[in-house]
């Protein structure tokens, strides 16, 4: 059996200390809050699992969770293939490659609340180009009143903001493929699809893993953009998990239920991310 030397793990100690201070200690505090009814640090009562029962049977959480899963699934289903397609169609070298990279990077540099504001104005029927144009073309488009319009606008906004990330990751992955693979494919007269399926896609696996994980986690935690764009409406149509949580924690100041909610939220992200990671890293080993 091959025995590994684990002494290099000591080098992780500074990062571990930083993570302990910034994440583990706050997380432990949230666990402590989730089992108490807290009014202030000195006035608190142990309630056991009451908040978990309350949160797990709360229809608001069920609805937000369902909306959140649908939203994240749509985001992944659109942004991953689109990002790969954009990366494949980009020039490989020269000034056009540099220009494409700059253009792709622009949406990533814009803060979330500004993206929300841009799309809020862009989608308005009276002064926004998108809303005005759609209405002029005969479509009855109003993201503030129609559920489908609100969903499509939030999704398109997210696609506009974040597909660049997937495209840039895939582009870097494509540029890292040695030319000998393409030479071998040319000798075998492989079709473009065969090159994509048997060379590019397998070689993109590690960057796609990062892209899928980042886009899942980010889309699952989305807050600012839909909050600015639709405020969670119409009704609760675009109220996702973090907005429900924020209402509970900051709006109603229900710290105990909000802490229990946060932990359930964290466990869902942990499980889904782990499933993605395991499926993508163990897929080859099991073949």
């Amino acid at each position: 059996m091959k025995v590994q030397n684990n002494h290099a793990w000591w080098l992780v100690l500074p990062v571990f200390a930083l993570v302990a201070f910034s994440a583990i200690l706050p997380m432990m505090t949230v666990v402590n809050y989730s089992v108490q009814d807290i009014f202030d640090p000195t006035t608190r009562f142990f309630v056991g699992t009451d908040w978990y029962e309350k949160v797990l049977t709360d229809p608001r959480l069920h609805d937000s969770l369902l909306r959140q899963f649908i939203f994240s699934a749509c985001v992944l289903a659109i942004e991953i293939p689109l990002g790969i397609a954009v990366a494949l169609s980009m020039p490989t070298k020269g000034r056009w490659a540099s220009l494409c990279l700059i253009v792709l990077a622009i949406p990533l540099l814009i803060p979330w609340n500004v993206v929300g504001t841009i799309w809020q104005i862009f989608g308005r029927g009276d002064i926004g180009l998108l809303g005005w144009a759609l209405n002029a073309l005969g479509f009855s488009y109003n993201y503030a009143a129609d559920t489908l319009d609100a969903w499509v606008t939030v999704l398109v906004m997210d696609v506009w903001h974040w597909t660049s990330l997937v495209a840039l990751l895939c582009y870097s992955g494509l540029r890292a493929i040695p030319d000998v693979y393409y030479q071998a494919a040319r000798i075998d007269r492989a079709s473009s699809w065969a090159v994509f399926r048997h060379i590019q896609l397998p070689k993109l696996k590690s960057v796609l893993l990062i892209a899928v994980m980042l886009r899942f986690m980010d889309s699952f935690m989305i807050y600012t953009e839909p909050f600015v764009l639709t405020g969670g409406g119409p009704g609760n149509a675009t109220t996702f998990l973090s907005q429900t949580l924020t209402k509970m924690a900051v709006g109603q100041f229900d710290l105990g239920p909000a802490a229990a909610f946060s932990l359930i939220y964290f466990l869902i992200i942990l499980l889904v991310s782990w499933l993605f990671y395991t499926a993508m890293t163990h897929g080859d080993q099991n073949r």
Partner: peptide, 15 residues
């Protein structure tokens, strides 16, 4: 450590 609002069950859990 009062700011972390410790309780005995959660302390045992983390221990």
């Amino acid at each position: 450590m009062n700011w972390m609002a410790w309780t005995q069950p959660t302390a045992i859990f983390f221990a």
